[in-house]
Amino acid sequence: MSDAPRYSAEHVLRYDYRRSLGPVLARFFTELRDQKILGTQAPDGRVFVPPVEYDPETGEALDELIEVGPAGTVTSWAWVHEPRAQHPFDRPFAWALIQLDGATTSLVHAVDADGPEAMKTGMRVKPRWSAERIGQIRDIECFEPEGA
């Protein structure tokens, strides 16, 4: 048996597929590249950001996209004292729920602030755009306190 020839083959474990974002998120991310943030407006005035194809409460199809923000108000936040490898910063930062101006829901993103004492529910923040934008959520590098 020990003299038997050995055979080998390279095996790459990978899922090579492309997925369409669909009509709504595709527009959201395309506009994000151009530093515009879109939300979905329901007939009763609610504005969802990130945008949705269907009303999360009624299931009704929605198709009206409007521009919101870019600044907004923090509705909740959490301070990361020790970032993990997957986190967007390697220094302490905040996660926040941010209600962009004109939206009735909040968006999750990171906030680059000096410390937890610089964070407060109700504070105003604005986006800091990534230098290279490719049509994804991290085209917004993070939010930062307004006036920073």
Binding site: L25, V80, I137
Partner: peptide
Amino acid sequence: PYTLGPLGIDSISMAALQARAWLD
């Protein structure tokens, strides 16, 4: 996987956002 996953947010951070809202 489009608007939340790529941020790299973990489960404890997500719960912390909820805890803050509750404390407020």
